[in-house]
């Protein structure tokens, strides 16, 4: 129960840059908000593993976004369908459909396109916001938050001690 909290606190207090932590949340947003078995998620996975993105935060944020996406699926469908059926965009979609990447990207499924169109702004616009959050936490809120009973409780717990020892 406390493990995820300790992991988040640990990540926030680590020496990793705010950009690495924010990028983790942004990539998790794309992976979580769009259908998992999509071609673009292979690219997300590649980026997360190849670039120094905080994996702990990525793994924790992904299920949160995935849960949230369940509620948004009808919205994804409506957005995706209305864009896919735009007469002006038909030619562009048709030529994309007729190449292998387009065919395997599943973009012609309204939910895939709709979810990607929501996930990308969330990830891109969210990146500076998440970075600002981490910076503010470290510079302003950390000391205050450390005084909260719950944080003291977590830090005093055996899970925290064990986690500290394990992660060195």
């Amino acid at each position: 129960m406390l493990a995820p909290f300790t992991k988040v606190i640990k990540a926030l207090n680590s020496e990793q840059s705010p950009a690495q932590l924010a990028a983790a949340i942004s990539f998790a947003a794309i992976l979580g908000l769009t259908p998992l078995m999509s071609l673009h998620n292979l690219l997300v996975l590649f980026c997360v593993l190849f670039f120094r993105v905080n994996l702990t935060l990525f793994i924790l944020a992904w299920p949160l976004f995935a849960t949230f996406s369940l509620l948004l699926e009808p919205v994804y469908h409506n957005i995706g369908y209305s864009i896919l059926t735009q007469p002006d965009l038909k030619l562009a979609f048709e030529s994309f459909y007729n190449n292998i990447i387009g065919r395997w990207s599943n973009f012609y499924y309204p939910v895939v396109l709709g979810s990607l169109l929501i996930a990308l702004p969330v990830a891109i616009l969210g990146y500076p916001f998440f970075k600002w959050l981490v910076n503010n936490y470290r510079n302003k809120w950390k000391d205050k938050i450390d005084q909260y009973q719950i944080i003291r409780f977590i830090k005093a717990s055996k899970v925290w001690q064990a986690y500290q020892r394990f992660s060195g």
Partner: peptide, 18 residues
């Protein structure tokens, strides 16, 4: 006119050169 679905939905078909 595909119905709303909670999976990835009905595909929208485009002209297929293949």
């Amino acid at each position: 006119e595909p119905e709303e679905t909670l999976e990835i939905g009905q595909p929208v078909r485009f002209g297929d050169k293949h």
